[in-house]
């Protein structure tokens, strides 16, 4: 296997992520998403948010490495992704993020050869310790 299953359960250091307005706008613009909740702070405030709202896939910008897990980036394919939220992320949030290896397993590829699957989950809490989001990624090493 390209990743030692012994890494299952290992976690990253906790990383504090500060959610900035500019980062939200740049991310929304790159997607071509002009939802005013993501780009217009006055509009977001009018609708009950303290600042700009982050798009649902925004936590992909939070890179939280797990030291025991190493691979060559260009050999990696993204297999699946899930986000769940207790509330939307907004600019000004400071989120304490920890990443953990949930699973490592091997499957036969469609064109033969074995592929290694790596499943990781980032949990993000606010500074009061309330869970805000989880992000579960499945990546495939060819």
């Amino acid at each position: 296997m390209q990743i030692d299953p012994a890494v299952i359960g290992s976690t990253s250091e906790a990383v504090l992520m500060e959610v900035e307005k500019g980062a939200i706008r740049a991310f929304a613009h790159a997607i071509g998403d002009e939802n005013p909740l993501f780009t217009d702070e006055a509009y977001a405030r009018e609708h009950g948010y303290s600042s700009l709202v982050a798009p649902p896939t925004f936590p992909t910008t939070f890179r939280v490495p797990i030291p025991q897990v190493k691979f060559e980036l260009s050999r990696v394919l993204h297999g699946g992704q899930e986000y769940s939220y207790t509330r939307p992320i907004v600019a000004g949030d400071v989120l304490r993020c920890v990443n953990q290896v949930l699973d490592v397993y091997e499957r036969e590829g469609k064109q033969g050869g074995k592929m290694t699957f790596l499943v990781t989950r980032v949990k993000g809490e606010d500074l009061d310790g309330q869970l805000v989001f989880t992000s579960t990624s499945t990546i495939i090493l060819r």
Binding site: N35, H47, S84, T86
Partner: peptide, 17 residues
């Protein structure tokens, strides 16, 4: 997010590529 508009939010989004 567009479907939710200002009536709510996307509380879960899951995909397979």
């Amino acid at each position: 997010s567009q479907l939710a508009g200002t009536q709510g939010f996307v509380s879960r989004l899951q995909v397979r590529f």
